[in-house]
Amino acid sequence: MPETAQPVIALIYDFDGTLSPGNMQEFSFIKALDMTAEEFWSKSNKLTRNNDANGILCYMKLMLDEARHKEISLKRESFQRFGREVEFYPGVAEWFSLVNGYGRAKGVTVRHYINSSGLKEMIEGTSIAGEFENIYACSFLYDVDGKAVWPAVAVDFTTKTQFLFKINKGISSVSDNSEVNRYMREEERPVPFRRMIYFGDGQTDIPCMKMVRQNGGHSIAVYDPASAEKRRAAERLILEERVNFVCPADYREGGETYNVVTTIIDKVKYDYEFEQLLKKHREAAELEA
């Protein structure tokens, strides 16, 4: 798919701690288990350590085990209902239409993606689910009765990087490994890395944030404005040259995050026009040669 006259800019978000102040399971699912968040994650971490296992797979198994024990429905619709209770940082609900409108005014197309170690089914139940071109996240396999029985996709910090290449090449399928490895010339890729903006808050985002930054895109480490500790952790990422910007997780118009993103959009537009100018002059010279 060749580039069009209107460049596409991909805004790619982690979810927990980036768009939402906390892990999505904590707003209602863990409460329904009659557990505290500390109890649930302590149990998940213990399962991980004792079995030298993948932490994402362990939390997914624990969700299934505890839900069965407490006779909570394991159907997709049940997880989506829990997703409706997820809360967001200030401005998130209005953010997408705000940035889309700014992009249109500048002559660019803005697309939004989720790249998360959280649960896809819960994200699908949130009020913002329809804003995303694709949701890359953990998910379950379901049996003939529609009940979750096994992890289908587990997304950890290394798995996240493959989804950047899927976005880069315009591949929506998680299971398609052949297309993502097929050679594609840079100018044919729908979303070059230099037109990506990655939002993340923690350790699982570092490989993606660094990859986007190193390939000419822009990475933003967001932090909970109420936490000085999280701010310091985010600032370390910029000092270690893993991200370009550090912003509070406040998505309201006129805030730091808004100003950074709109400035990046301006830069991408000008860079694109400059590339087109270079291309025009090169093609003219080739015709004369």
Results as ranks from 00 to 15, higher is better:
residue 147 K to L: 06
residue 108 V to P: 03
residue 94 E to S: 15
residue 212 V to N: 00
residue 81 R to P: 00
residue 233 A to E: 09
residue 17 G to H: 04
residue 171 I to Y: 03
residue 244 N to W: 05
residue 14 D to H: 10
residue 276 Q to S: 06
residue 258 Y to D: 13
residue 138 C to W: 01
residue 220 I to V: 10
residue 261 V to A: 04
residue 242 R to T: 03
residue 33 L to K: 01
residue 1 M to P: 05
residue 6 Q to W: 02
residue 167 I to T: 08
residue 216 G to M: 03
residue 240 E to N: 11
residue 178 S to R: 10
residue 5 A to I: 14
residue 200 G to K: 00
residue 132 F to Q: 02
residue 19 L to K: 04
residue 64 L to A: 09
residue 180 V to F: 03
residue 275 E to Y: 07
residue 204 T to L: 04
residue 10 A to P: 01
residue 83 G to H: 01
residue 179 E to C: 08
residue 267 K to N: 15
residue 184 M to V: 13
residue 101 G to A: 15
residue 16 D to M: 00
residue 212 V to G: 00
residue 42 S to A: 12
residue 46 K to L: 13
residue 239 L to I: 14
residue 77 E to S: 15
residue 81 R to Y: 05
residue 279 K to A: 13
residue 161 T to R: 03
residue 58 C to M: 12
residue 273 E to V: 10
residue 124 E to M: 04
residue 261 V to L: 12
residue 261 V to M: 12
residue 130 G to H: 03
residue 131 E to H: 14
residue 38 E to Q: 13
residue 275 E to T: 05
residue 239 L to T: 15
residue 203 Q to L: 14
residue 253 E to L: 07
residue 45 N to V: 05
residue 258 Y to C: 08
residue 283 E to I: 07
residue 33 L to N: 00
residue 67 A to P: 05
residue 173 S to M: 05
residue 112 H to Y: 10
residue 23 N to D: 14
residue 51 N to W: 14
residue 205 D to W: 06
residue 50 N to F: 13
residue 102 Y to S: 00
residue 85 E to C: 12
residue 142 Y to T: 06
residue 168 N to M: 12
residue 94 E to F: 11
residue 181 N to L: 14
residue 3 E to K: 11
residue 118 G to E: 01
residue 227 S to F: 11
residue 249 A to C: 11
residue 256 E to W: 10
residue 162 Q to E: 15
residue 121 E to A: 03
residue 48 T to I: 12
residue 188 E to L: 14
residue 209 M to N: 08
residue 82 F to L: 01
residue 19 L to I: 09
residue 6 Q to M: 06
residue 207 P to R: 07
residue 190 P to W: 02
residue 146 G to K: 11
residue 125 G to R: 02
residue 257 T to R: 01
residue 261 V to Y: 07
residue 139 S to C: 14
